[in-house]
Amino acid sequence: MSALARQRRHALLLLFVPGFLYLFVVRIVPAVFTLGMSFTKWNLQSGRPPVFDGVANYATLLHDHSFLTSVVRTLLFSAAATTIELVLGLAIALLLNRRFPARRLVRTLALAPMVITPAVVGMIWFILFDNTVGPLNWLLSLAGLGPVGWLTNPAIVMGSVLLADVWHWTPFMFLLCLAALQAVPAESLEAAAVDGATPLQSLRLVLLPAIADTLLVAAVLRAMSAFELFAEPYVMTGGGPGDATDTLSLHIYKSAFLFFNMGYTGAMIVVSVGILVALYSISLRFGPRAA
């Protein structure tokens, strides 16, 4: 073995292997453990060790109304949030891609919500939605509307969570759309204009096809993280009123850390990861190039 090869081996062992093993033990092993525990009957409070129970947990899940409802609720939320935020984000990117004074400052300010701590986003909207300290119902009353039970009316509370999410994550979509728009060569837009295209035509025929891949990646990333929504409803509603904002992550959290049904919760986790993988595969079919 040459000196360099030996030194490379040395560097591999010294710089790579420890970090890799660490990651493997702390992230991969627990994931495998979760899969394993989904086939057991295991309540942490009972003090008894897990007992192998076959696919019993999965069979129960199929008839678990509150779990299935929370899956549907989360999927609907994820689809609505992704669509609204993508459209708004693209519109804002088109707007802020034009020339105007203080453009950098405006762009920076428009990005701010994206980095705000999710638990704080929950608190900010908890304050805004409140009847006594919040301004929203007062603003509505100026227009002769309301008052609205933003966080107390089960029929609309998911919409309130959605509103907070749109405020929080539209800037992320805007950022990705702006980056993609800036990469579109100016010549192709100029050529379209010379050919007499209206702004709307050049958007549809030149810009959108050029940034379609980015839009798809942005939508997939956002849909997946919206599917994991946790901190905001935890802070704003705790899943209520009733179970109106019981998202999948909240449902899993409660099942594990309030009722300590670890085996059953394991099955819920496996099913939700399965849904994520399925969604991901479907989206890849639509745009193989984006992968």
């Binding site: 992230r27 992550s249 899993i252 959290y253 919760t265 986790i269 939700s272 990861v273």
Partner: peptide, 15 residues
């Protein structure tokens, strides 16, 4: 791979 797992997937064994 772990990046694609929701944070909640590994939380129970970790806990």
């Amino acid at each position: 791979l772990p990046r694609t797992f929701p944070p909640i997937t590994t939380l129970i064994p970790v806990f």
